[in-house]
Write a protein that binds this DNA or RNA. Structure first.
Length: 640
RNA sequence: GCUGGCGUAGCUCAGUCGGUAGAGCGGCUGAUUUGUAAUCAGCUGGUCGGGGGUUCGAAUCCCUUCGCCAGCUCCA
């Protein structure tokens, strides 16, 4: 048979030769570890015999598929160790993740974090055994018999739903139902660490029993593993919950779980973000409104929230009338729309609302600022004709990316979700709306993922996701078409024909939740905010108390220029004040001693970059004003 | 909500076998008058998350409750 390699070269091999055999002939010293092969585009085991002419590629750990093979075999290794240590263990599923792996296992006893070390030790031992990992294609009956004998009921359940093309992988006494591919032997797995334990419902179903999930990661070199662990530690340091306390931005209290208490410095972030947001929205043709927090249940019954969202709502009863705290702004926003009689000439109407909404989230869901029970949505509703959808969405996408850019977010994942099985509105309406969203995405030249059937029941949507420091992805922006509300609330506008028409409604948010967005900002900048956002933009550090009057005068001058400046008048040495300002991540320090007081100057120090020499206060003010106005960092290019 | 883990001073954390609760940082007071990441000294600090129980005696053991953390589930 004729094998074609990635470099275009070709060679003859006898049928039945495995990629591993071929690799032995072609390998040169210093080549990276090959963990699998790709045959005509399909990843396969290195030990899979080849029988016909093919294109052959070797996969290393640097290929995503290679990494998956490595991690997947690591998961099997871990499962084998657990089966050996806990004979009653039943395996669920154990896939590779982006940079780790896990296995869900049912055990008669609960594991402690200390047990992980035991499992790791056994894994190391199995690696030493250098067991061959062998694939076997079996029939469904054979597989069922095998797992029945081994008491693996969970595997039998999986098997039930599978077609007849079943493969199992063996390494020593261990067998797992698996599609593969895998490493040739357990000896390949060089460096691994088990990371954590957690519960996970079998097949993700709340009604099914909970299994124990063990997370781990593995790498071909010790350095790569160390680097992974180090990265994780660094990420934890920029966790917004930790920085929120350290930088005195906000706090949480058991008296109101899941709802942040903003401290003065944190509120500066919020207010700056809002100021900028208002400016952008005014420019984009929005009018801001504000509607009540508590509204009659009659409204919520009409909007459908009472039927679909009651579990997440807070209720109150006064004078025998029922009220609900709003979980969304749209119903009350619609009441505002209905006070007008709009003509087609008025459309699109864009009403924005920074609405404070309350949603009851299950206690286990709460997560710092990122998942809360009360938050401020940067909401807006656009009412337009069907013909205007596309251009509105194009403009909106532009606005969204401009705002994300200003905040330093350049990595955004975009998803388009289309009509779900259960939905309202005509097929024609859906087709048109989906097309409009697709066209808008194409015009914006945006790559996106398609989520067929994942739209809301009332319309298709585009979602924008941003990642947090630990790589978790969070939805911020959203553009949702809504065919339901205009019907329910009988919205109208007067068309050119003088008749009443129903407008299309677009719900949209850009930051999503201001609270969440600020949490993401904190992590994104690791607390080193660009000057325009920094809660304290500069701190004046007098060297002795003889400069206190000068420091106070300076402070006034900077504050008069609209800058957020403090003076550290404590009886401490300047080194101490500098250290503290650095730790508090104050971007600028203005050191003033006898010399500066004498000459009316300041000694400028930039956080993380040290002494910048003497400047006049006016020079520093001009520098700062410019950086603030341009929303960029001072004296250095924004790294984010 | 579910599974597991955790909760000791404002913060970070120690506390052995059940036997009078500790350190560093912080805060306060004083001395020092300081030149680019920690000056020195003294003082202060606690319902050991809350409640109940076992015990002569509980931070420590048990029950319960609240909160936090990881994951799962959910996310109109």
């Amino acid at each position: 048979m004729l094998i074609t390699f990635t470099d275009g070269s070709q060679a003859e091999f006898p049928a039945g030769t495995t990629p591993q055999d071929i690799l032995k002939e072609r390998k040169r010293p210093g080549d990276p570890l090959v963990v699998g092969a790709r045959v005509d585009g399909q990843p396969v085991d290195l030990t899979r015999p080849l029988h016909q002419d093919t294109r052959l590629e070797f996969l290393t750990f640097d290929d995503p598929e290679g990494r998956d093979i490595y991690r997947h075999s690591s998961a099997h290794l871990m499962a084998q160790a657990v089966r050996e240590l806990y004979p009653g263990a039943q395996l669920g599923i154990g896939p590779a993740l982006e940079d780790s792996f896990y296995y869900d296992i049912q055990l008669p006893e609960f594991l402690n974090p200390e047990d992980l070390a035991k499992i790791e030790a056994r894994m190391a031992e199995i690696v030493q055994r250098k067991l061959r990992i062998e694939r076997q294609d079996v029939s469904k009956e054979e597989a069922a018999k095998l797992f029945r004998e081994r008491g693996e009921n969970l595997k039998l359940e999986l098997l039930d739903e599978m077609d007849d093309a079943i493969s199992v992988y063996r390494q020593g006494d261990f067998v797992d139902l698996c599609r593969g591919p895998h490493l040739p032997t357990t000896g390949y797995i060089k460096h691994f660490k088990l990371l954590s334990l957690a519960g996970a419902y079998w097949r993700g179903d709340e009604s099914k029993p909970m299994l124990q999930r063990i997370y781990g990661t593995s790498y071909p070199t010790a350095e790569a593993l160390q680097e992974h662990l180090h990265r994780y530690e660094e990420a934890k340091k920029r966790d917004h919950r930790r920085l929120g306390r350290e930088l005195d931005l906000f706090s949480f209290h058991p008296e109101a779980p899941g709802t942040p208490f903003w401290h003065p410095k944190g509120l500066v972030l919020m207010e700056q973000a809002i100021q900028y947001w208002r400016q952008m929205h005014q420019r984009a043709g929005y009018q801001e409104i504000r509607t009540p927090l508590i509204l009659s249940d009659v409204l919520w019954r009409m909007s459908g929230h009472y039927d679909h969202y009651r579990e997440n709502m807070y209720f109150s009863r006064m004078e025998d009338r029922d009220y609900a705290v709003k979980p969304m702004n749209c119903p009350s926003g619609l009441l505002v729309y209905k006070t007008y009689q709009f003509s087609y000439r008025d459309l699109p109407v864009r009403f924005a609302e920074l609405g404070h909404v309350h949603r009851f989230e299950k206690s286990g869901e709460l997560h710092g600022l990122i998942r809360v029970r009360a938050f401020t949505q940067d909401d807006a509703h656009i009412y337009c004709t069907p013909d205007q959808i596309e251009s509105e969405v194009v403009n909106l996408i532009g606005l969204i990316f401009e705002i994300y850019n200003t905040f330093g977010f350049h990595e955004v994942r975009v998803e388009l979700s289309t009509q779900p099985e259960k939905s309202i509105g005509s097929a024609e309406m859906w087709r048109r709306a989906e097309k409009a969203l697709e066209n808008a995405l194409a015009k914006a030249d945006l790559p996106y993922e398609l989520n067929p059937g994942e739209g809301a029941f009332y319309g298709p949507k585009i979602d924008f996701h941003i990642k947090d420091s630990l790589g978790r992805s969070w939805q911020c922006g959203t553009i949702q078409m809504d065919f339901s509300m205009p019907e329910r609330f009988e919205l109208e506008y007067i068309g050119a024909d003088g008749e009443r028409h129903r407008p299309v409604m677009i719900h949209r948010a850009i930051l999503g939740s201001l609270e969440r967005f600020i949490g993401l900002l904190i992590e994104h900048y690791a607390g080193d905010f660009p000057l325009w956002l920094a809660p304290v933009q500069a701190r004046i550090l007098p060297i002795t108390d003889k400069q206190h009057d000068y420091a106070r005068a300076l402070r006034e001058r900077f504050q008069a220029a609209g800058l957020r400046v403090e003076a550290d008048l404590r009886n401490e040495k300047v080194g101490y004040k500098i250290r503290q300002a650095e730790l508090e991540k104050v971007p600028l320090m203005l050191v003033v001693g006898g010399r500066e007081a004498e000459s009316g100057a300041v000694s400028l120090r930039v956080k993380g970059q040290g002494d910048q020499g003497s400047r006049t206060p006016d020079e520093v003010i001009a520098l700062m004003r410019e950086a603030v106005d341009q929303k960029r960092s001072l004296l250095k290019e924004d790294e984010h």
